[in-house]
Design a protein around this nucleic acid. Structure first.
Ligand SMILES: [Mn+2]
Ligand SMILES: [Mn+2]
Ligand SMILES: [Mn+2]
Ligand SMILES: [Mn+2]
Lengths: 149, 149
DNA sequence: CTTAAATTGTATCTAAAGCTACATATTGAA
DNA sequence: TTCAATATGTAGCTTTAGATACAATTTAAG
């Protein structure tokens, strides 16, 4: 069996580290996806049925009420929501701010995909994931094109 | 304190379920992000330094070698790689197929962002996350625009 | 006022993905 | 040939995020 190659020249640390930066950013984005989706959903429900309840959130997000419970507890520790047992869930000021940002970004991504000719359905499906990885620069580029259409 | 509202009319089950579909898709995409990034990196390293080793992968991805070890074990169980102790890591046929798809998609997303006027650096950062949430339809739309430029 | 249905909470399990600390194996050079 | 540096493996911890099963509370009817 062939012996593994081991390069004698010390591998340059810059290229790997540079690539690693993208992966780190991506993982960081992933870690906050949940928080963003929750505050956006809570903001929506606070308007539409009138308040955000555990089961309503669970149905909206497609998870069990148990998952919602624990995530809401975490969001409360993070300062995004206020929640008391058997009560509706409310956004804090920070939560409302984050929700507004996410909603705007979500809508921009959907509109941009629609502008590309993607169907409503698929645009919505893709946007729910893409939105969390769009930098301010890219979002600005999307908006620029939408204004010029 | 105001009592929580409880609507007497049964809440319609369709709208929530429809929104839930996007979140489910997004979570499913998230679950396979790691596998996609790994096989793509393994394919790259197999070409460039000549083989994919644990530490090289770790440096490339920005994680510890321990994380690489466990993920590689999982990818092996999933049938994407072959790995034996103290040896280099190889892609299976399924792994090569997945890697090729991911590489093509990655490059298309980067090229599209560049076409939008995004800088190389930021395009690369955003693409690393966005790529995993781009449907075939949206990818096709990106390619269409790139051809027409 | 009672009570059944709905909602909410909790205990407990699983898996992925990160980490540190430490052990073992391999390699390159003295 | 020895041995220190590097690479690899492993044990065990944490957090997040999903689940099921069951308990407790609240609400809506009757
Ligand atoms: Mn989302
Ligand atoms: Mn969204
Ligand atoms: Mn990626
Ligand atoms: Mn990639």
């Amino acid at each position: 069996m062939p012996r593994p190659i081991r390069k004698s020249t010390a591998a340059p640390l810059r290229p790997p580290a540079q690539a690693a930066e993208s992966f780190r950013r991506s993982r960081r984005d992933r870690a906050v996806e949940t928080a963003q989706d929750y505050v956006e959903a809570i903001a929506d429900l606070t308007v539409s049925p009138g308040e955000a309840r555990v089961v309503t959130l669970a149905r909206r997000l497609g998870v069990t009420h148990v998952t919602v419970n624990r995530t809401v507890a975490r969001l409360q520790r993070a300062g995004y929501v206020r929640a008391k047992p058997y009560q509706a869930i409310f956004l804090t000021e920070a939560g409302r701010k984050l929700a507004a940002e996410c909603k705007r970004r979500h809508e921009t991504v959907v509109a941009f995909l629609r502008w590309l000719g993607i169907s409503e359905k698929i645009a919505e499906l893709d946007a729910e994931g893409i939105e969390h990885h769009v930098s301010p620069e890219t979002l600005a580029a999307f908006e620029r094109l939408l204004r010029k259409r």
